[in-house]
Simulated assay, not measured.
Amino acid sequence: MDKISINIARKIQLLIQGESIPYGQLKSKVINQMIEDGILNIKLQGRSRKTIFTAKPEAVINFMSSHLGINDLKTYINNEESGLTRAENIIASSNSKSSTRRTFKGFLVNCFYPVQARIKGLKFVIEPLEGTYTYIHNFEDFNIPAETLIVGIENPENFRFIGKQAHLFEAESILFVSRYPQSKDLVTWLQSIPNKYLHFGDFDFEGIRIFRDEYLQHLKNKASFFIPQNIEELIIKYGNKGLYDSQYKSNASVALNLNSDIENLISLFHKYKKCLEQEVLVEVGL
């Protein structure tokens, strides 16, 4: 990963503070990687003006630490302004808070029926109490039965209330995994096991893009996109027109090379000029 310039570092600090930055001011491989990982988001304003923002500043902070070794961005910026070399600055900004910040690897899992698992050959049962999750740190040594379906959930609300959505899934053994916090650990693990992966995200252009770019391209035919049988009825009753308007122009080609089910879903977006957030399935109990 390339080191970041002081200009990009200042822009990232503003994003962490909740500001939006014009897309044209953030030309950097680091920025592109955070967009690809879903840590930074693109918003279309007007007909063509794009801005970058983040809804999860803590994920940006974690990315800076784990990918660039920068544990304190403010210190990094101050050191750049003071004329330290890049190498000296990375060391200084990393050491400044190394005793108070820990970078975690791995991902959260959840289930509504117990799932038998192994870590380093030792058996254990994944069976979180309601309101708790299991965190898998040593994912390289984490194994589950090959027949267990893995369902990736994009939204924390849906991940929290999986019991309200049990009727949506027919598999006897299911392990739910959380896309948040975003990292490549989850995909790395999914690539190493034979299990099928079902992506349960928002029913909008961005949700399909996340599935395509973050999962499908790496998992190929092991990955599929979850679409409820009554999706048309849900879009008619609970669809969001603003969501459609803000996304469709910048995602015109999102369906290219995808399957007919996803193409049909996108045709429903265009038919009703609406998209659907997955939280609806929790809120209305459908």
Rank of each mutant, 00 (worst) to 15 (best):
D141P: 02
I262H: 10
Q17E: 13
Y133N: 09
I16A: 06
L168T: 01
Q13H: 14
G152C: 01
M34T: 07
N110H: 07
T51D: 14
I162E: 02
N158A: 11
A252K: 11
L149Y: 12
N230E: 12
S99N: 12
K43V: 02
F176A: 04
I35S: 02
Y238S: 13
L190K: 01
N138G: 09
R118E: 15
L149I: 01
N138H: 09
E147F: 15
A146L: 12
E19P: 04
V125I: 15
I193N: 07
K241Y: 08
H167I: 00
Y133F: 13
G239K: 03
S267Y: 08
K271P: 03
D37P: 05
R118I: 08
Q165A: 02
E232S: 09
I231P: 12
E36A: 10
A166Y: 02
K196E: 15
A166T: 05
R101C: 11
V109Q: 01
M64Q: 01
R209D: 14
R10Q: 12
L219K: 02
R102M: 09
I21R: 08
Q165M: 14
F159C: 07
E140D: 10
E81I: 06
E206P: 04
A117C: 09
S98G: 09
P156F: 05
I90P: 09
K120M: 06
D213M: 13
K274D: 11
L40R: 06
L276H: 14
G131A: 11
S66L: 12
L256Q: 10
R49S: 07
S267K: 13
T75M: 15
L258W: 10
F211W: 06
E214Q: 15
K220M: 09
F104I: 07
I6L: 11
I21L: 10
L258H: 08
E88V: 10
S65N: 07
A146C: 14
Y272P: 02
V115F: 00
E170I: 08
L14V: 03
Q182P: 01
S5I: 07
F139K: 03
A117N: 05
L198M: 08
F107R: 05
N41F: 02
R209Q: 14
I174D: 03
L168V: 03
T100C: 14
I162R: 01
L265Y: 05
Y244K: 00
N264E: 11
F211H: 04
Y215F: 13
I77N: 00
I21M: 06
F104A: 11
S250V: 14
Y272R: 06
R49T: 11
F139P: 03
L268W: 03
F226I: 06
R10A: 04
A171I: 02
Y180N: 07
N221K: 13
S93D: 04
K274H: 12
E232K: 12
Y272I: 11
L234S: 12
Q191D: 06
I174V: 09
